[in-house]
Deep mutational scan, measured.
Amino acid sequence: MKVIFLKDVKGKGKKGEIKNVPDGYARNFLFKKGLAIEATPANLKELE
């Protein structure tokens, strides 16, 4: 799953980066803790 990092996550990504991460990791950790959001076309446009 492609995500946009909202905060730095040690060993995974830095704020503003767009990366592919495992689906479970994104849903169960990154999204729940507010560390990242899904890289949807709308979210990507908002980032620019």
Rank of each mutant, 00 (worst) to 15 (best):
M1W: 05
K2H: 09
V3G: 00
V3P: 00
V3R: 00
I4H: 02
I4Y: 09
I4N: 00
I4F: 08
F5M: 03
F5L: 07
F5E: 00
L6E: 01
L6A: 02
L6N: 02
L6Q: 03
D8K: 06
V9F: 04
V9K: 02
V9T: 03
K10A: 13
G11M: 05
G11N: 09
G11V: 01
G11L: 05
K12L: 15
K12Y: 15
G13V: 05
G13A: 13
K14H: 09
K14Q: 10
K14P: 01
K15D: 03
K15H: 08
K15F: 06
K15E: 06
K15I: 09
G16A: 03
G16K: 03
G16L: 05
E17N: 04
E17Q: 11
E17V: 04
E17S: 06
I18E: 04
I18V: 12
K19Y: 07
K19A: 10
K19I: 11
N20L: 15
N20R: 13
V21S: 02
P22M: 08
P22F: 07
P22E: 12
D23R: 13
D23N: 12
D23M: 15
G24R: 14
G24I: 13
G24N: 14
G24K: 12
Y25I: 07
Y25L: 09
A26F: 13
R27H: 11
R27A: 08
R27I: 14
R27F: 11
N28E: 14
F29E: 09
F29I: 11
L30M: 03
L30Y: 03
L30G: 00
F31N: 02
F31V: 07
K32M: 11
K32F: 07
K33L: 15
K33G: 08
G34V: 03
L35T: 02
A36N: 00
A36W: 01
I37Y: 05
I37D: 01
E38Y: 07
E38M: 12
E38A: 11
A39D: 02
A39P: 03
T40R: 05
T40F: 05
T40W: 04
T40P: 05
T40Y: 05
T40A: 06
P41S: 11
P41N: 09
P41A: 14
A42Y: 09
A42V: 10
A42S: 11
A42H: 12
N43F: 10
N43M: 11
N43Y: 09
N43W: 07
L44R: 06
L44T: 07
L44A: 06
L44K: 05
K45P: 06
K45E: 12
K45N: 10
L47N: 09
L47Q: 11
L47R: 06
L47W: 15
L47I: 13
E48I: 14
E48F: 12
